[in-house]
Design a protein around this nucleic acid. Structure first.
Lengths: 366, 366
DNA sequence: TTGTACGCGTTATCAG
DNA sequence: CTGATAACGCGTACAA
């Protein structure tokens, strides 16, 4: 009725233009801050837009401009760090979003469910043109998403290293640095029989951390034998089972490094049941310090500090630059960022007391 | 060149049609499963689409059809449950997505950062027509998002009760049931001085749980006095401070119920430092049982089991129905769902030993 | 400074 | 069963 379709809700650019007795072109220019519009007109348009509650339809805008103004962040269900996982990513999102906002872009999160295929999922996002850029996380060693995105020439950043791809932008935690600091500390305390708890499954970082530890040990003339490598589920339950496995071991380690912190919670639980005290009977080094993780474990856990907000800001900033460059027809050199982590000493590696009663068989100190 | 614009990537419906020597209309019909297209043609189109990697541009499709095929799930940064928060929502997402997929819809998550205004954030999503429906979470007592969405007649579900709105669809945890079960258990064990740890800030559920506890106590002739109400941060640190506060109390409670489980972790930590054992010296009842939360607390925590996946499935299913109804021009009666939670007894309320040395002043049992 | 008109990619209507 | 064509809402050349 009266030119207004039945069931139509909201106001579009035509309504607004008609209301003001100007053309839609003028409305568009005024609202998009173009120079060639009089101050008076702009004021009227902006005021009316606010009053009528107009905001441009994103589909129309995207279709016309060829860009969506959105950046996707893809997370994968069953590869998540079981416990710290969620708080981990939320903090990262905060950083990403704050940076993107400065470029007038928005962050949307795509959650790849347990029963969905990550590669298909990523393809759908890209092909339907839902976003201008994509951040993928929880990369695997062979990650076909990366090959696809490169081949497709789509702006993306991988949060996590991979053997796939090559000259693409990625950011990852400093597993080598963490391994070096952890192994250095433990060796200086006299440990030589050091176990590594890495994650099972196909996420890449477990493998990266394991090799980093192997290398750090090798630099000190210590070989990491298979019986010292434990692939566990990244969960409290995984940590609990790890504890069982260590306690049942015929020749247990004197020290242990973990690839993730929820493992520590379950491990502590099992160790306490067995009367084994971390830091006294077994040295334990955790991983990332997050509010979720083991701030309140007792004895306190030696772990590594990092700023997830700043990490997210790096992702957001680099993504904005990638998209900006593409828009300008330019090409940007891919960035590779190793995110620093700083050790925070806790009681779990605290001065080793050689004479303490030790249910685990201790190796003689060097 | 050759009609192919510089820099153009991907193939659109015209390319595909030209390639097959059919019209774009036929391609569209074939791909959208319309009846009026020959089997032979459909086969050819589908095969070519797959081979050329065609998938429809979502902006074009949305613009034309007036629907996006997407459902938004808005989560808010600084209102998140600090620790269990993330795993909590991820599990819900899984359920939502599995249901939406059956209706051919997708889930996108919008993360409202700490510095953004939730109402403005929600408005932007709706007005730009980014989604066909919106699930909002972490509702406040007065939640202007709800008023807005109702006034706008936009399909939405609130995950969390609110004093705002009224005849809209919402789902919430069974705080009354939890309070009743918790208070019943504690009273039957002889407790009469029962404290309630609720959450600070403006999320509604802290208030709901507090009042539910007050009512459950009143039914048993017990008044919940102000000194027994603790508003704490929903975090391990909040739980730690709660412990400090309880220990410093001149007339401490003999039992305590918590509105969230990360509080339990910090609380346990402080209690252990003070030599106070949950279940012996102080009865503690936690809240939602999640993998993240205190599965491995010792003594084990009495808490409540719920299926977050099924909860998410309810949200997804109801949202699909809401959108379907709107599409058909029909109107659906709003649903209100109280999600059941079932008590899981742990050692933290385990048989009270009256004669045990009790650092906290115990009230005489009834 | 402003208005007009085209096209972004798609689906739907209407002839054929 | 298929092809041509008109929208959907917007941004932007180009003309005035």
């Amino acid at each position: 009725m009266l030119g207004r379709r039945e069931g139509k809700v909201g106001v579009n650019i035509h309504d607004l233009a008609r209301h003001l007795n100007v053309s839609i072109g003028t409305v568009s220019r005024a609202l998009n801050g173009r120079a060639d519009v009089s101050d008076e007109t702009r004021r009227r348009v902006v005021a009316a837009a606010k009053r009528l509650g107009y905001s441009p339809n994103q589909s129309g805008r995207s279709l016309r401009s060829g860009a969506t103004g959105m950046v996707g962040f893809m997370i994968i269900a069953n590869r998540a760090r079981a416990s710290s996982g969620e708080a981990f990513f939320m903090t990262v999102f905060d950083g990403v979003q704050s940076k993107l906002a400065k470029s007038g872009m928005d962050l949307v999160i795509y959650y790849c469910g347990a029963e969905q295929n990550p590669e298909t999922f990523a393809k759908r996002i890209v092909e339907r043109k839902l976003v201008d850029g994509l951040i993928i996380s929880q990369t695997t060693r062979i990650d076909r998403r990366i090959d696809y995105l490169i081949q497709r020439k789509f702006p993306f950043i991988a949060f996590g290293r991979s053997a796939s791809g090559g000259a693409h932008s990625w950011l990852d935690l400093d597993f080598e640095g963490v391994a070096e600091q952890a192994i250095d500390l433990l060796c200086r305390q006299g440990h030589r029989r050091i176990a590594v708890a890495t994650c099972e499954g196909d996420v890449n970082f477990g493998h990266v951390y394991l090799e980093a530890c192997r290398a750090a040990l090798a630099r000190r003339g210590i070989e990491l034998t298979d019986d010292l490598i434990h692939a566990v589920a990244m969960s409290q339950a995984g940590g609990y089972r790890l504890g069982e496995s260590l306690l049942a071991s015929r020749k247990p380690p004197t020290a242990l490094v973990l690839v993730e912190n929820s493992i520590a919670i379950g491990l502590y639980s099992k160790l306490r049941e067995a009367g084994v005290t971390p830091g006294r009977d077994l040295a334990v080094v955790g991983f990332d310090q997050t509010p979720t993780s083991s701030l309140f474990l007792s004895p306190s856990l030696t772990q590594f500090r990092l700023s997830l907000t700043e990490l997210g800001a790096w992702l957001g900033g680099h993504m904005a630059a990638l998209i900006e460059a593409r828009r300008a027809g330019a090409t940007m050199p891919p960035a590779r960022k190793i995110w620093p982590m700083e050790i925070v000493l806790g009681e779990s590696t605290g001065p080793r007391i050689a004479r303490a009663p030790d249910p685990l068989l201790a190796e003689p100190s060097v």
